[in-house]
Amino acid sequence: MDVVVRCQDVKKTFGTRTALQDITVKIPSHQVVGILGPNGSGKSSLFRLILGLNQPDSGEISVLGRKPGWNNNHQIAYLPDRARWYGDHTVEGAFQWGMDLLPGFDASKANELADWMEIDKKMRVDGMSKGQEARLMLIMCLARNVPLIVLDEPFTGIDTPSRERIIDALIDRVTEREQTILISTHEIYEAEGLFDSVFFMNEGRVELSGPAEELRAKHGSMVELVGKMSHGGRGR
């Protein structure tokens, strides 16, 4: 199995709060991987370490065979948690920004996705609904030819039609199987079918992981499993 992210005893604290506790995981490549868990379980902290936005207090982490950091991020498309896009950009302006600053950004792919997701390319971001802005941000990630895409809560606060569009775009991308996609989400019911592998996190630890099919066969649906995990059960 090829591994895209490897963590060995990774620990991260913010002041007195422990975000990650001795995490040891190997995330397989060329799959759609769900990172699931309740709020504060450490999903976003793990993603920030993958991007090198924060440094671990101890332990080792490698992403695509390299230490995380700015000089590895040309290989990663990242949708941050609770992010907004630049309000004064139009969609075309955002694509120009992508072409200027994001390695592997494919403008023709971005235009295709914008048409398909029904985004007006002349529209300014500060005039968009939250769903339209979320779709634009997803396009900025999906239009990149990079080996790893990291999407932190891409469905949060988005209306159902936009969410469906986003999931459809992801499914479309998944079928091409060119990339590894890491997704953290609370919208498990709708996104469940996307995942090849799943990692359940709770209180800064990986409580359970494995191929999605195996976990479903053993524990029932992902929704049930997350419910159990969130209430303290280990599900093992």
Binding site: L51, L53, W70, N71, N72, N73, H74, I76, Y78, P80, D81, R82, A83, R84, W85, Y86, G87, L101, L102, P103
Partner: peptide, 15 residues
């Protein structure tokens, strides 16, 4: 303030 720090800091360029 504009919640763009994640985009800005994850650019593949040094701080």
């Amino acid at each position: 303030d504009n919640e763009t720090a994640g985009w800005w800091l994850s650019l593949p360029y040094s701080r």
